[in-house]
């Protein structure tokens, strides 16, 4: 039947191939075709099982692991850099605050110092004024005293001189009156 025809064709083809093999192409020698197919399928299957069950998951694990680690590290780095930035900002704020504080302290102490100095100055001036007043008063006293004593001295001297010259005593009251008159008129000329 048809099958037989096919078989004959196949065998014919086979023979041709055998001939070709003898002519120089060992690839067309069907002697070891089954053996080659068998071993190919066996070895390939084993290799496939080993690779798909063992090696590929491992390589994939390694790759995923690395990618994840790199990603994590990058995230961490980003977080840290943000943190650093924030910290930096904080420090800068602190520094500017401190600067402001320092300025404030300086102005305040300056003000305080000014105030102190003014106070001291005022006190000193007050004291000085008092001293001056005292001194003026003393001077005035001395002046008054001295003018009084001058009057006395002048009276006595006048009395003596008059007594010496005239030989008689003038009464004290008239001398006193003339001295007073002179001093009244001339004292300003001598003392102030």
């Amino acid at each position: 039947m048809r099958l037989k025809v096919h078989l004959i064709i196949f065998i014919y083809w086979f023979e041709t191939l055998l001939f070709a093999a003898e002519a120089g192409m060992p690839q067309l020698d069907p002697k070891y075709w089954f053996s080659q197919s068998f071993w190919l399928i066996l070895i390939f299957l084993l290799l496939y099982l080993l690779i798909s069950k063992f090696f590929i998951p491992k390589i994939k694990d390694n790759l995923d692991d690395r990618e994840k680690k790199i990603k994590d590290n990058l995230d961490e780095a980003k977080k840290l850099s943000e943190l650093a930035e924030r910290k930096n900002l904080d420090y800068e704020n602190e520094i500017s605050n401190a600067k402001k504080e320092v300025v404030k302290i300086i102005t305040e102490s300056k003000k305080q110092l000014d105030k102190n100095i003014n106070q001291k100055k005022e006190q000193f001036e007050k004291e000085l004024e008092k001293e001056i007043k005292n001194a003026e008063k003393e001077i005035l006293d001395v002046k008054r005293d001295s003018s009084k004593s001058i009057n006395l001295i002048a009276e006595e001297i006048s009395a003596k001189i008059i007594e010496d010259i005239t030989g008689n005593k003038l009464n004290d009251s008239s001398i006193k009156a003339s001295v007073a008159e002179v001093s009244k008129n001339k004292m300003g000329k001598y003392l102030w």
Binding site: K31, Y32, F34, S35, Q36, W39, I43, F44
Partner: peptide
């Protein structure tokens, strides 16, 4: 024939 050949060896 399923003999082990040099082809099998190199596979």
């Amino acid at each position: 024939d399923l003999s082990f050949t040099n082809a099998s060896l190199f596979m």
